[in-house]
Simulated assay, not measured.
Amino acid sequence: MAAAIHIPDLRAAANAALTSRWAKPAVFMFALIPLIWTVWLAYTGELGAEPVLESVKASGLWALRFLLIALALTPLRMLTGVAGLARFRRMLGLFAFFYAVVHLSTYIGLDQFFDWTAIWQDIVKRPYITVGMGAFMILTTLAATSTGGMVKRLGGKRWRLLHKGVFVAGLAACLHFIMLVKGWQTAPLVYALICIGLLAFRRWPIRLARRKEPAVRTRPAAAPRSAEAPEPRFPDGSSPARRS
């Protein structure tokens, strides 16, 4: 009969793997695979009749995916108790920004050929581009303030408040995807539901903990019975009053 596998053992093994020296380089290389694969498809001519448009779509979709993965790490850590997952939030968030940069750069350089007048007209005429640009600006701000030095400059409280903007960026990116496609399609709605579910899950355990937390009442310290100084004693323990 096979020995039972205990959850604490699995949790310890997962933490050991995620905190090893090879974990971050491995995640870094895996995160580059979508870009390498898209470039390979473009090189071999397998991106279809409109390779530039497909490149724009692919990079934007991976930006949204990495953003949702970064948002999923905290709920996943809360569910599994694997604390090592927290090491990858910054990296995956920066990869979301990286793919957003690729998405925007491909649109500006290869689709519009740096025609800033046409780009501005697109932003004004097409609301989904306006929403997408808003999400990109938020991600740019978060990426620029993601270093430890910026945490010290802003202060922990202000830094955490600023980085809650990632929730707005996630919702804006999902809205950008929904508005981009023609008609009501399943995929954009699924991404939006995942984003809303992740945000709701992050809030729900906090509220539940606050409701279940018992009220703690503190009692004031008892006042001393007498404010008088203690009666002096001789080395043998006798009182001076008795000797007088």
Results as ranks from 00 to 15, higher is better:
M29D: 07
P220L: 04
R202N: 13
L73M: 14
A229L: 15
A2I: 02
P214M: 02
L68A: 05
Q112P: 04
A96G: 14
L180G: 02
F88A: 08
E50S: 12
A135G: 12
H176A: 01
A187T: 08
A96L: 03
L68N: 09
A12I: 02
A100E: 02
P214H: 00
P240S: 12
L67Y: 02
T106S: 06
S59N: 09
A12M: 13
L35I: 00
A227Y: 07
T186N: 03
T38S: 14
L162W: 08
R11D: 04
L180V: 06
N15Q: 07
L139A: 14
L175V: 15
S20M: 06
Q112A: 08
A100Q: 05
I119H: 00
P188R: 02
T106W: 07
A100G: 14
P8S: 09
P25Q: 08
L180D: 04
L76T: 14
G156P: 01
R160P: 00
S59P: 02
L110G: 00
I196K: 09
L68V: 05
L175R: 00
W37N: 11
I194F: 12
T74V: 10
Y128A: 01
V166C: 08
S226E: 02
A215F: 05
I69H: 04
R87N: 13
F167W: 14
A17Q: 11
F30W: 13
P127V: 12
V168Q: 04
I7F: 15
R65S: 08
S238V: 05
W22M: 04
L161W: 07
L68S: 12
V102I: 15
C174N: 08
A13M: 09
G48V: 12
I33C: 08
R225Y: 04
P34G: 06
I108G: 00
S20Y: 09
A3M: 10
V166T: 10
I178N: 00
L32V: 01
A209K: 15
G134P: 03
R89E: 04
L68F: 04
L41A: 15
Y107H: 03
A223S: 11
G93Y: 08
V102H: 04
K152T: 11
F30V: 13
R202L: 11
V39T: 09
D236A: 07
T130P: 02
A143N: 06
L32C: 14
A2F: 03
V82P: 10
A42H: 11
M150Y: 08
P205V: 00
L10G: 01
P205C: 06
L35D: 00
R11N: 02
L189G: 01
E213V: 01
L171S: 03
E54R: 15
I33K: 07
N15W: 05
L71Y: 04
R126P: 05
L67K: 04
S105G: 06
G48Y: 06
W37G: 03
R217Q: 09
V190H: 02
Q121M: 10
E228T: 10
V190A: 10
W116E: 03
R233D: 03
I108F: 15
R21G: 10
V124P: 02
M78Q: 14
W62L: 04
V82M: 09
G237A: 03
V168A: 15
